[in-house]
Design a protein around this nucleic acid. Sequence first.
DNA 1: TTAAAATAATTTGTGCGCGATCTATTTGCA
DNA 2: TGCAAATAGATCGCGCACAAATTATTTTAA
Lengths: 151, 151
Amino acid sequence: MKKPDDNFGVDGMLCFSLYSASHAFTQLYRPLLDKLGLTYPQYLVMVSLWNRDGQNVKELGKTLFLDSSTLTPLLKRLNAAELITRTRNPQDEREVLLHLTEKGRALQKQAGDVMQCIGEAAALDAKTLDNLRSTIDSLRGRLHVAARSEM
Amino acid sequence: MKKPDDNFGVDGMLCFSLYSASHAFTQLYRPLLDKLGLTYPQYLVMVSLWNRDGQNVKELGKTLFLDSSTLTPLLKRLNAAELITRTRNPQDEREVLLHLTEKGRALQKQAGDVMQCIGEAAALDAKTLDNLRSTIDSLRGRLHVAARSEM
DNA sequence: TTAAAATAATTTGTGCGCGATCTATTTGCA
DNA sequence: TGCAAATAGATCGCGCACAAATTATTTTAA
């Protein structure tokens, strides 16, 4: 991470590279996701539920690194769009269980078709992509640890 | 980029790695920036102006990949905090020129002291960091190109 | 020379992202 | 047993992020 007085502006700051590249991905996704009626964070939720149906809000938040104040309204919108159901767990009424509807499950096939082109835009071979991903993921891990120990 | 039906959930998606790592950086920055009274995007604007004072909104947006509808309210808040001034360019009244105030300039020294620890949290040597950054930056470039040519 | 096109910034509306706070349920332990 | 602590979600407020539409100024070309 460059210090601000290194005088290269935002260029040279790793945090800015991540920030701007993440937005670039979102913008590339947007027109494709528009066709599915999803936003990018909603898409991430659907991917997670396609992978594992019946999660509760807590579990979902843990995989996406988002808390309930972000997820609750988002999940209500997915519910309003009839892609998921939200039901309290009878065994523990504190938990809200998230289940795909038929419509929500059906969307996965549509998404698979549409999403193919994102990978092509990235234009990275499997090995490079995998290295990059794991480098960033372990960086994220260290940042989370540092954030925890900051207090 | 993994296809959604590869059944690994959001793990394995490069876009998610970037998205979540970017948020992790923001969260690590937050308590430090709170001391300066800045949000993370406001900090990016200040870094850009510390590097080059007197930019207009368009130029700033180009370096940060943000458009004026995001920047205008943010710049008004920086102006309200008396860190910058916003004046129309007399040569071209369409442009708004952004200048640091004395207070805005002074903040750079404070920021430099505080930001040191971010680099340590990332725990990357200079070479690795530089490689990672340039890999992500060129990826961002390809994504922007793909987004443009999508229409 | 002036009307149309281009450009720069603002405004408006929607949906995150998150800190802080609140409610409801469950757990634990005195 | 009963009451405090812990846990899971929901709510509220603020500040991005961005599409779409609007306003004001400058450029252009007829």
